[in-house]
Amino acid sequence: MKFGILINEGPFTHQASDTAYRFAVAALVKGHEIMRVFFYNDGVNNANRLSEPQSDDRNLVSLWSELGNKHGIDLVVCVAAALRRGIKDEILADGFRISGLGQLVEAGIEADRMVVFGD
């Protein structure tokens, strides 16, 4: 099955991105496709490559990058939400791209299932 994922929170204040990541990994293990992960609201902070968690903590920014590259997942950061929060191409982690809200709607149209993770 083809999944679309929406993440509305950043990598630290809420568990949302962690849960979404584990969900995505499990879906891939089960042979499903993640056609797009769309990052909205503070979720755009998941794409900030300047983020430096402590060494004994998980690094969701790199986890998403690696997962995206390994499985060809389209990691899309909402441009309007990103600009507000200072997330620009210059600081975008590997594998992410910035695009419009239309990409979220398109994911909803194309995916068999859309799952939203947030606060």
Partner: peptide, 10 residues
């Protein structure tokens, strides 16, 4: 578990 979560969604 997370795989069961995926099954529920499908």
């Amino acid at each position: 578990d997370y795989e069961g979560f995926v099954d529920l969604v499908t």
